[in-house]
């Protein structure tokens, strides 16, 4: 049997890479070489144990995943991600809503076309106003202004 393994062979064994039968045989018999391999492996397994202590509650994690899959609208973004996207979407939604409201109610409706008032009606209104003695400003003129009846008789009988 060889006295000791080379460092390269010990590394191969420590890395868990396939080694020659001769090397395995030596490791089984040589305390010094097997201690070198074990020392490294023990350190790595201690490190792995420290990682296992950090592991989350698997059941809770699984439930969270399934809940999110059951609610496709629940956007699955971590806390620090996608905030700007949601803000942008919210702003876009508000703008769209405002445009919709404006299209529905806010546009200036054309002024309604008033029906033409018959000339006779206007004249009748003017006559009524002129006949009203109470209309301010006409008091001084009233003796000179013939009434509607007087006007009619003048028109039918110009001689008088």
């Amino acid at each position: 049997m060889r006295r000791h393994l080379t460092e390269d062979e010990i590394t191969t064994a420590a890395a868990g890479l396939a080694s020659q039968a001769e090397v395995d045989e030596h490791l089984a018999a040589c305390m010094t070489c097997s201690r070198s391999v074990d020392e490294f492996r023990r350190l790595v397994s201690e490190r792995r144990a420290s990682l296992e202590a950090e592991m989350p509650d698997w059941g809770a994690q699984r439930r969270r995943i399934l809940v999110q899959l059951g609610e496709p609208w629940a956007e699955v973004v971590p806390l620090h991600r996608g905030r700007w996207r949601r803000t942008l979407l919210a702003v876009a939604a508000v703008v769209l809503a405002a445009v919709g409201v404006w299209l529905q109610f806010g546009r200036q409706a054309p002024a309604p076309v008033k029906p033409a008032v018959p000339v006779e009606q206007i004249l009748a209104e003017v006559d009524a106003t002129l006949a009203d003695d109470q209309v301010p400003g006409f008091e001084a003129l009233s003796p000179m202004v013939p009434t509607a009846d007087e006007m009619e008789s003048m028109m039918t009988n110009p001689a008088s």
């Binding site: 460092e7 390269d8 590394t11």
Partner: peptide, 12 residues
């Protein structure tokens, strides 16, 4: 992997 383990063993 072999290089990594070798380097770690050396540095340790």
């Amino acid at each position: 992997l072999h290089r990594a383990v070798h380097r770690l063993r050396r540095e340790l």
